[in-house]
Amino acid sequence: MPNKLALRPSLEIPVLEMSTSIESFQNQTLRPILKLQNDLYLALFKAYIDRKKTDFSTLRKEQKSIYIEQSLQKDVALKNIFIGITVGMFTLEELEQYNVDPKEFNRRIITMLMERIRSQI
């Protein structure tokens, strides 16, 4: 199996001395994984829209944004799929760090995914 870290794109995110361990994990682990898996997240969300038979293309920009937010917050199955795709790219060390506060990391994953999907759909 290839090294998971080698698969990830490198991001030019400045490491701030005042960053918390959660912020560091977000910037050094979560953001590169989200970028790496971006096409997969978008394809899954588009398939979700089709499955729900939503006429997404006719929605106004604000309505699309609300639809994306509500889908990722309220549809537990969809939310868990996206979190699973992300966590599946962790190393064992990253998983240990994630397990310290999974609720906070899941919140951050979903928040960042909302922004990614909004900006690309």
Rank of each mutant, 00 (worst) to 15 (best):
L78H: 02
E12S: 13
P14C: 08
R108C: 07
L59Y: 03
Q73D: 13
F45I: 02
I68D: 00
L36E: 05
S57I: 08
N27T: 08
A6F: 11
E96K: 14
S71L: 00
I33Q: 00
S21H: 13
L7S: 15
K103Y: 14
T20F: 06
Q70W: 05
L113A: 06
I83M: 02
I49G: 01
T20Q: 04
R8N: 12
A6R: 12
K64A: 04
N3Y: 12
M89E: 15
F82M: 04
L59W: 03
V87D: 02
N38Y: 07
R108Q: 14
R116L: 15
L5R: 14
F25V: 02
E23M: 08
T58L: 08
R107P: 05
F105G: 06
T86D: 03
E104L: 13
V87K: 01
V87M: 06
T54P: 02
T91K: 04
I110R: 03
P14I: 12
I22T: 11
S119Y: 07
R107N: 14
L44Y: 11
K4Y: 12
G84F: 01
K52D: 04
L44F: 10
V76M: 08
I85A: 05
N99E: 14
I81A: 06
T86Y: 03
I121M: 12
L7E: 15
Q26D: 12
G84S: 05
M114S: 11
T86F: 02
E96Q: 13
K103T: 15
I85H: 03
T86K: 05
K103H: 12
T91I: 05
T91L: 06
E23Q: 14
L36M: 05
N27R: 10
P102D: 07
K52M: 11
I117Q: 01
L113R: 01
L30Q: 04
S10T: 14
K103N: 13
K103S: 15
Y41P: 01
K61N: 08
L42F: 04
A43L: 07
S24D: 09
N80S: 07
V76N: 07
L92D: 15
Q73G: 06
L78E: 04
E94W: 04
S65P: 02
Y48E: 04
I49C: 01
Q37K: 12
K74F: 11
Y98V: 06
R8C: 11
T20N: 07
E69L: 08
R107F: 13
K35D: 09
N27H: 10
S65M: 05
M18R: 12
Q37E: 11
L59T: 01
I121T: 11
E93K: 10
F82V: 00
